[in-house]
Simulated scan of single mutants.
Amino acid sequence: MYRFLLSRQWVILTLVTLLLIPTMIELGFWQLHRHQHRVAQNERISAALSAAPVPAEQLTSPGHTVTGEQRYRRVTATGTFDTAHELVVRRRTNSDDTIGFHVLTPLVLSDGRALLVNRGWIPADGAQTAFPKIPAPAGGRISVTGRLMPDETSAASGIKDVRGLPPRQVMLINSAREAKSLDRTVLGGYVELTSPAPHSGGPEPIGRPDHSSIGPHMAYAVQWWLFAAGVPVGWWVLVRRERRDRTEATAKAEEQPAEPATV
C-alpha cells in the first residue's frame, strides 16, 4: 500500500523533510537567543541610564576598554575644555538624519589628564573640507555629566576609518590616537555630554539611546517552530494524496474490460 515510499523520489523527499525539522527548530532557538540578548541589553542600558552618576575616573583610566556593562553609565568630570585641540567627527547625523559633525573637545582634568567629550552635533555647511565654525563651550573650570562610551572601531560601527582627512577631522573617536596628538594622557573611551545644556546656538545634544524596542525575534522564533510542526503534516498530506491517486488509478485499470483477441 505504501511501497511507493521506497521509490527514489519519495526517499529524497522524506530525507529532506527529516532534515528540515531540526533545522527549523534550531533556527527558532537562534531567534529566541537573539530576543533574550536584546532584552538583556535593554535592561543593561536602562540600568546604566538610571544609575547615579559617578566620577569618570572610577570607571575608566588610560588605555581602558569600556565594557558593555559600563557603556551608557552616567559619569561626571571637572576640568577645563581645551578648544585648541578640538576635533570634529565626520558624517554623523542628528535626530532628523541630517549629516553633519560631532564636536569632540578634550576636557583637561586637574591632574593634567584629559577626557574626550562629545559635545553634540553641528550641521555641515557645504563641503566637509574646511574646519567648521564651532560654538565655544563655557570657559574656565566646569563640571560636566555625560554617558560613558567605548572607543569606536570600524568593526563595531561599520564606519571606515579614512585617513588623510582635512586637519582636525576624524571618522572615529579613539582615545589612544588622540592621546598621541594631544601629547598627554587620555582616559579610555569618551563621554557624550548631557549636562550642562548647551547655550542657544550650541551643538545639538546627542539623544538618549533607544532601548524600548525588543525587535521581532520572538515572533520569528514562533514562526520557525510553526514551520517545523507543519513540515511533517505537509509530508503526511502528500503521502495520503499519493496513496489515493495510486489507488484510484489501480481501480480504474481493473474496471476496464479486456479487449477481444483478434482472429
Score class of each variant (00 low, 15 high):
E254S: 05
V237S: 09
A261S: 12
T262W: 07
V263M: 09
A258R: 14
T247K: 14
T80D: 10
A228F: 00
R141V: 13
A179K: 07
A251D: 00
A136M: 02
V103T: 02
G28D: 05
F81Y: 09
L59A: 07
N94K: 06
L20V: 08
Y220G: 00
G79W: 08
Q41G: 07
D82T: 04
V231Q: 06
G146Y: 02
R34I: 12
E242T: 10
T17A: 11
G164V: 08
H217E: 10
P62S: 12
V108D: 05
T247I: 08
L49T: 09
P260D: 00
R243S: 13
H217W: 09
D97Q: 15
H35S: 14
V233C: 12
P22S: 03
Q169A: 06
P53F: 08
T65D: 12
P167N: 02
T83P: 09
W235E: 01
D183F: 01
F29M: 09
P198A: 13
R163Q: 13
L32H: 08
R74I: 13
P260I: 12
A176Q: 15
Y220S: 04
A130V: 14
V11A: 12
I99Y: 07
P257S: 07
E248S: 13
P257E: 05
L172Q: 04
P106M: 03
A127F: 05
A176N: 10
A176V: 14
P232I: 00
L20R: 01
R119T: 03
R90T: 08
H217N: 10
P137G: 12
E254V: 14
I12Q: 13
T65N: 10
V263P: 14
H211A: 12
A249I: 06
L165K: 08
L165N: 04
H35R: 01
G202Y: 02
T65P: 01
R3Q: 10
W121K: 05
L15I: 14
T60K: 00
P55Y: 10
Y190Q: 01
P205Q: 12
R177A: 15
T185W: 09
V11H: 08
Q256F: 11
H37N: 13
A56H: 11
V108G: 04
G189L: 09
L107S: 01
V108I: 15
L87K: 06
R246G: 01
E248N: 11
A130K: 01
Q36L: 10
S143T: 14
